[in-house]
Design a protein around this nucleic acid. Sequence first.
DNA 1: TATTTTTTTGGTAACGTTAACGGTACTAAT
DNA 2: ATTAGTACCGTTAACGTTACCAAAAAAATA
Lengths: 344, 344
Amino acid sequence: MIKLTQAKFVTLKDIAEKAGVSVNTVSRALNNKPDINPKTKEKIEKIADELGYVKNSYATMLKSQVSNTIGVIVPDSSNPFFSEVFKGIDRAAKEKDYQIIMMNSEGLYENEEQFIRTLLERRVDGILLFPMQKSYEDIKELIRERFPIVLVGREYDGWDVDQIYSDEVKGGYIATKYLIEKGCKRIKMITDELYNSASFGRVEGYKKALKEKGKKVQDQDIKICDKIHEGYHIQAGYDEVTKMLKQKEIFDGIFCYNDLIAYGAIKALKEHGIRIPKDVRIVGYDDITFSSLIEPELTTIRVKKEEMGYEAFNMLYKRIKSDRISNSFVKKILDVELIIRKSA
Amino acid sequence: MIKLTQAKFVTLKDIAEKAGVSVNTVSRALNNKPDINPKTKEKIEKIADELGYVKNSYATMLKSQVSNTIGVIVPDSSNPFFSEVFKGIDRAAKEKDYQIIMMNSEGLYENEEQFIRTLLERRVDGILLFPMQKSYEDIKELIRERFPIVLVGREYDGWDVDQIYSDEVKGGYIATKYLIEKGCKRIKMITDELYNSASFGRVEGYKKALKEKGKKVQDQDIKICDKIHEGYHIQAGYDEVTKMLKQKEIFDGIFCYNDLIAYGAIKALKEHGIRIPKDVRIVGYDDITFSSLIEPELTTIRVKKEEMGYEAFNMLYKRIKSDRISNSFVKKILDVELIIRKSA
DNA sequence: TATTTTTTTGGTAACGTTAACGGTACTAAT
DNA sequence: ATTAGTACCGTTAACGTTACCAAAAAAATA
């Protein structure tokens, strides 16, 4: 039972006075330490409960220098992709009794910088970062100083830091290959801004499949929609396809950077009476929950989202627990899988 | 630039020694306090920067007794409804320079209890709670002790605490009324477990509309699906409708507790070749992003999600800043709105 | 009974920061 | 020359906890 006497928290001292023992003894009793008389312990626990003692974690953390907390920086927590990855993080953290401070960078560099500072001020034991930018001085500095950090979802080649991400090139490749095999003659790609390995990789896979099948890569077929942060992916996909249609571009297949963009693309196509997959075939990316619900059900690349989060935490945990001297960094690459549904 | 010399954080003392001044002077310099020579300040700032000083917020909080942090407890952060409410909270918190610690209770009472304790241990200045249960001793205790807390999304009648929630009865009422006016003869309702005002209110509105239109409320028409936590709403809606169909129940309208359940219901109906809205009309609740994307586009009740979060934070902020003696609590009720699309 | 061992407890200092207060040095006013 | 005022800086104590060591009490051994 939690009690706050007159909006003030009870301290160890208060308990000690009431129990007629020293503060130290109370501390030992409440922290299941050895060297304490079971009877004393019981008595102290009872008083602590009566008084509604709630430990002050600031004091504990200040003294012990560990927070049992990690920071997580995601670009957009309302994007179902990140929600699912986060679930995995959350599950792993609970297993190890760690707290999470989550921050929403909205994909903005200034935010990321600011958040890292805040997390450091809070003396988190480590940071899980979904980076958005191509490179950052602050993060590199953290890495240089061996601050426990794991980069999630994006590959940063040559960086001395633990990383976990999907095989993006493969994803882009099998998606595009499937479209070609289904008979698509001209496949467009709609991608997010090309500022990290996720977009680069998927585009690369797209190109690879085209080349392999003897098709020429047309640069104007790769649509880069900027400013699609903060949940605007759907809108971006919609706008891009609408524009393509208005300009009478010719295509019979679209490979979308993610499912949200695909949703928007489908909406635009439907509005113009274009049949999916008969006239245009669509493949998305991520396989978020809703992709099996929309019409037509979305063919997409399944990414191991929960596993990514779960593994990411455990990699970070390992790093936190190990010394900071080690020079061997782990790069974990998760496999992807084509989920065949109706849209292609 | 953040620097961590040999994985150890720099302290005020380190700066003081290097600058040849006292710790206090450094503190004043770095916190923009008066009584400091601009030249000294500049010098200290330079050294702090060189050394890569990052303040230890535990120490600050311990001393100052304020954390500028609130705790937010949501039942399921991967539910788009909560994501959107959370966005509002996040926006408001940023405006006031507050940090958020978010916790995912998964709708479990034990978790809520545990989380409140953790948040209290972290000495958050206040708590925003989306309660799942009907009543709790711990929360009541907090309220008794005037700990700053705002209950979000659910009404707790007679509780001396700030609350913000939607007009659920109205929502249930206009949804059901619309179905009746569209010609539905037999309307089922699929709801979450009846353990809070959201479910109660919506059911009440459903009943009210039926009665008003001279229809008898059939208790067996109200399907209560339990165990639909943790993102299983879609599955629950699917299972419930499948069961109804298997048992050859007769109905031409369904009012769903939320959009996710409606998605599942739609999926089940489609699989059985039942046409929407021709054979069965469906209305959802919440109006989450994806509801305008599924087929048929979902008619639903729009809840002011972002506003709810934004207002909730500001109510809490006010409470934190005011004294804790005040006996007047505010109850804010947000209006709802019927969004007519294709499913009904 | 005296001595050693074990168990249990208390005192002190420290974690890093800030607030209150006091002191010093310098300038301006009497 | 004395006083008053101001600007700047340092000392001290505190926030609540825990680690370390010493002390006391109890139990076990000689």
